[in-house]
């Protein structure tokens, strides 16, 4: 539904977006990650046709955004960064305006406004002018205008920015639900959001796509991914160290004494262990049972998105296996 091909944007001599390509299909929620100033908003502005692209091509539902802007914009809803809206208008008149701009009249308009008011919980503030609203309400008012025409494609620039934890959760649930039937692209720098909502994530840094995959795939790039954490009872540090050295798939392990006679083990599989990698937890468990040590906790690390994000966008910190 959204197709971005070799998109670039320069401001003066500064290259804000550099040869970015990706695609978002129907039923997909794409998380757009990156540090501030990485080019997320610029990319989104080109997708929505606000900025003309310096090079490259964007098409939405098959319509080229620069050649056929109206047809593309009809299919799209957009929540700009910082959620701007006409301050002196009431929420109701603003939503009526947005609906009319989308060609909704009469009963259709009333229905659409009623639907988004319900979805975004705006019924309390309908008659208030927007400049008197709290940040959360302002944000939801702008979100409401972006979905008023039930678009097939949604572009949301930091949709949860400035919301409290409950509101954040609600917006995430909303995005996830809408993502089943639409193509959604949203930017954020809250990583847990990506894990909670996205079916795919792209990390962009200095205008370039540096990682693209499902949240699980991205997490697996973390140095900690596949590490096994065990807490044993009734063992000594020396004995554990000795027995661990017999496990072939193990690269190295940190063994530390813990209070009340426990021992904690953090075991890292060797990178070239292949299928044995995934069996590391099992091998350690077998060892403990053989030695009749009590296992209090056993867990395989999935890897942390934050770590991957940091290591990709700050290359001097070596936390990732394999380059982007």
């Amino acid at each position: 539904m959204i197709k971005v091909e070799n998109l670039s944007k320069t401001f003066g001599s500064k290259r804000a977006v550099d040869d970015v390509s990706f695609e978002v299909r129907k039923g997909e929620v794409l998380g757009f990650l990156g540090p501030n100033g990485a080019g997320k908003s610029t990319t989104m502005r080109m997708i929505t046709g606000f900025y003309p692209a310096t090079a490259g091509k964007v098409s939405v539902c098959g319509f080229d955004v620069s050649e056929n802007p109206i047809a593309a914009k009809v299919k799209m809803g957009y929540l700009p960064e910082a959620a701007p809206s006409y301050q002196e208008m009431t929420v109701l008149s603003f939503l009526n305006f947005a609906a009319e701009m989308r060609g909704l009249r009469g009963e259709d308009r009333r229905k659409a406004v009623r639907r988004v008011v319900e979805t975004c919980h705006l019924d309390m503030v309908l008659g208030q002018t927007i400049d008197t609203l709290s940040k959360g309400f302002k944000h939801r008012t702008c979100l409401a205008q972006s979905i008023i025409h039930d678009p097939e494609v949604l572009v949301l620039d930091e949709p949860t920015d400035g919301l409290d934890p409950n509101q954040k959760h609600e917006v995430r649930t909303l995005i996830k639900r809408m993502g089943e039937t639409k193509a959604i692209i949203f930017s954020t720098h809250i990583l847990e959001e990506v894990e909670a909502v996205c079916s795919r994530a792209i990390i962009i840094d200095r205008g370039r796509v540096v990682a693209d995959g499902t949240p699980a795939e991205l997490k697996a790039r973390s140095a900690r991914a596949g590490a096994v954490l065990v807490t044993l009872h009734g063992a000594s540090v020396e004995a554990v160290k000795e027995k661990l050295s017999g496990i072939a798939a193990l690269h190295h392990a940190d063994v530390c004494p813990a209070p009340e006679g426990r021992v904690t083990v953090e075991a890292f599989p060797s990178p070239d262990a292949g299928a044995e990698r995934d069996a590391l937890a099992g091998r350690i468990a077998e060892m403990a049972i053989r030695e009749s040590w009590k296992i209090e906790q056993l867990k395989t690390e999935e890897g942390r998105l934050e770590e991957v994000f940091r290591s990709i966008t700050m290359p001097d910190t070596q936390l990732v296996k394999g380059a982007a």
Binding site: G49, F50, P69, K73, S85, Y86, A98, G103
Partner: peptide, 14 residues
């Protein structure tokens, strides 16, 4: 200044 131009020009209007 308010950024509403972004809203306005991304609606279906030339």
């Amino acid at each position: 200044r308010l950024g509403t131009i972004e809203l306005l020009l991304t609606m279906p209007v030339l």
